[in-house]
Amino acid sequence: MKFTIYQESRIGQRKNNQDRLAYSYSRDALLMVVADGMGGHLHGEVAAHICVQFVTEAFQRDARPMLRDPSLFLSRVLTNAHNAILDYAFDKNLDEAPRTTVVACIVQDGFAYWAHAGDSRLYVVRQGQIAMHTRDHSRVQLMMDQGLLNAEEAAHHPGRNRVYSCLGGNHAPQVEFSKRLPLRDGDVLALCTDGVWGPLGDAALTAALSAPDIMQAVPALLDRAEGIAGPSCDNLSMIAMRWHDDATQPHADAISTRTMALDNFTTQLESFDTSRTPASRYDISDDDIEKAIAEINAAIHKFSK
């Protein structure tokens, strides 16, 4: 396999990053997964974390170096990830299991297979156009389907974050599976959370994902989404993968898995490097430093009397 891949997650203006994402590949199979823990719910980021970790570990167990049946793998692994979240809630005596959206994609034998629950999306961009994308499991999407809302109204609808399917929670997820899609040279698959697609329109997404270099286009796209969202910016995360025919002379950053050992995996689990999170969250001002020192010295003197 030959492809170029880029992933990034940003905290936006929120206190926590509840998005989790990872990709992993063996010689013959590639997994990409994105999960968005649900903030209003207890332990949302835990749900997202369990989901991504569970799916990644299952992939590494089964893709040696190929999955027997990618669709079956996706259906089994997402059900089990859902159960792993419920187990966690049970262990911790939580009243309600935490919840997360998920979108996961497998590429193998030149075909892509994906599945999702909730409103994290997968886009297929082909020849400068969105060839397909997942349909959100949200109330607004249902209303749009029934002609009750148009896209513009949906984008501002107060209930736009309400999803009716997800992993965890009190209801069994309704996971939706794609047909298998034969990939063509230059196709881009992009998985992202609503923090990315929410502020941007299709045009901006298409333009960025059609650019020759996704390694530059994706961070620029995230900048743009952050800029538009402003102070209410949600966590935003994206994995984008451009597929290359084995014959083409691809981009310098492309990965070729041809020479990988059969039992080898390369995995990238987003670990939220501080360098990209806004300084304000971690930074303490000179004033804070002085205060902390004064407080410590006051305690020292109080106790050393």
Binding site: T274, T277, Y282
Partner: peptide
């Protein structure tokens, strides 16, 4: 690294 450095300082406190 400045944000992380400052954050670590908080932990030193």
């Amino acid at each position: 690294h400045m944000p992380a450095f400052r954050y670590g300082m908080k932990c030193f406190f």
